[in-house]
Design a protein around this nucleic acid. Structure first.
Lengths: 204, 204
DNA sequence: AGCGCAACTGGAACGTGTTTCTATTCTACC
DNA sequence: GGTAGAATAGAAACACGTTCCAGTTGCGCT
């Protein structure tokens, strides 16, 4: 199975290419933010990013690859932001809830973008495994970091249990996002559901 | 927002119509089982079910509606099967794990069908809210039933907490299915992950 | 039996993701 | 500076979900 990957920023030799990649992702996010998943049409992206259709497909082999890569780049920003200051909260549960709340509020501020990225992520098939894995790692890392506290001690217990809990929480978070995107959950319900799940999982 | 629903079996007056609906869903499941999501092409379904394209769209307003409805009909079979005999297991955790294991093995026996139904479910947008809600209820009911035990006592504690736990578990189950469908989880990893999550959530 | 109407058929047509192809431009290397 | 090869532009073409329409069939009512 020849799983064609999206071109990562590191793969690209010239500055012009890195800039093309950046333009494409930015155009994607802008269009998604305005009109959601359906508005992200490949021809529209090429126009906004000022590249040819063939070039777009050279960088991202499908619309889903494109959107999941965009999700990855958004997550990078979030993690960078989070790692600037220690996560507040005395218990693991408090810290996780704080992180989830912050991330969730961020996404709810831009419903169309969230809809586009979430649906792409959930619709992805095997050919997007690489990009999906990247995002999954970012999520799990973010959450285990929150669980074990702001003190960034390399010796800190990155126990199997913590990783498992982080995975479960990210499952719940993703499902909640999907529920919210499809109108089954209100913003309050998302918050309450996450709160309940975290307290059930991290009752010490 | 005029959310066009799929026609449910009860909506249909004549026996011929109920039979058309049945043929369509069966054709969908057969094609999905053979080739997965991509193979479920609307024209192929019409050929196999021996109906016209316009008729197919009269019964199910989109491919996603069609597949989510098919998922619902599969779940009906599963619940019917489950309710025939009490769920084995002395603790809530054991019973839930038993139910999940049974359902999961069932789906893993037909990977293509599972891929088609799972991806449709996760890709659904607001217009599919009705069908999604049906499936969500089936899932939650199945799990709360397992939590509170085989004794089908109407007075039994259908506590908020039990429902919350059931929701979280169904979140984890769906995410695991997605992970399995996209090749991120092996069958063993799905089992272990579910096992871990349930034991974390139902430690009494 | 005849009427009226909704459902159904068959097929054309449209939109958007994806593929393909040729001409042009850029880049690395001599 | 010139050249080979990769990258890009531009545009046509294809595939499949979806819509639309004209004609036909089935069904309840009188």
């Amino acid at each position: 199975m020849t799983t064609a990957n999206s071109l990562s920023a590191d793969d690209l030799g010239s500055a012009a290419q890195r800039d093309r990649r950046r333009r494409i992702l930015q155009a994607t996010i802008e269009i998604a933010s305005k009109g959601g998943f359906d508005a992200v049409q490949m021809r529209a992206v090429t126009q906004r990013a000022d590249v040819a259709l063939g070039t777009l497909y050279r960088y991202f082999p499908s619309k889903i690859h494109l959107l999941v890569s965009a999700l990855g780049s958004q997550f990078e920003d979030v993690s960078a932001n989070l790692s600037k200051s220690p996560i507040p909260g005395d218990t693991a549960a408090d810290r996780v809830i704080w992180v989830l709340g912050k991330a969730t509020r961020g996404m709810q501020r831009d419903p169309n973008l969230t809809e586009a990225l979430t649906r792409a992520f959930m619709f992805a098939d095997k050919s997007v495994a690489g990009e999906i894995h990247t995002v999954g790692m970012q999520l799990t890392t973010m959450l285990t970091h929150a669980i074990q506290g702001g003190a960034y001690d390399a010796d800190a217990e990155l126990t199997d249990e913590n990783v498992s809990v982080a995975r479960v929480i990210s499952d719940v978070w993703l499902s909640s996002l999907v529920s919210w995107v499809t109108g089954r959950f209100s913003t309050e319900e998302v918050h309450d559901h996450l709160d309940t799940a975290v307290r059930l999982l991290l009752r010490d």
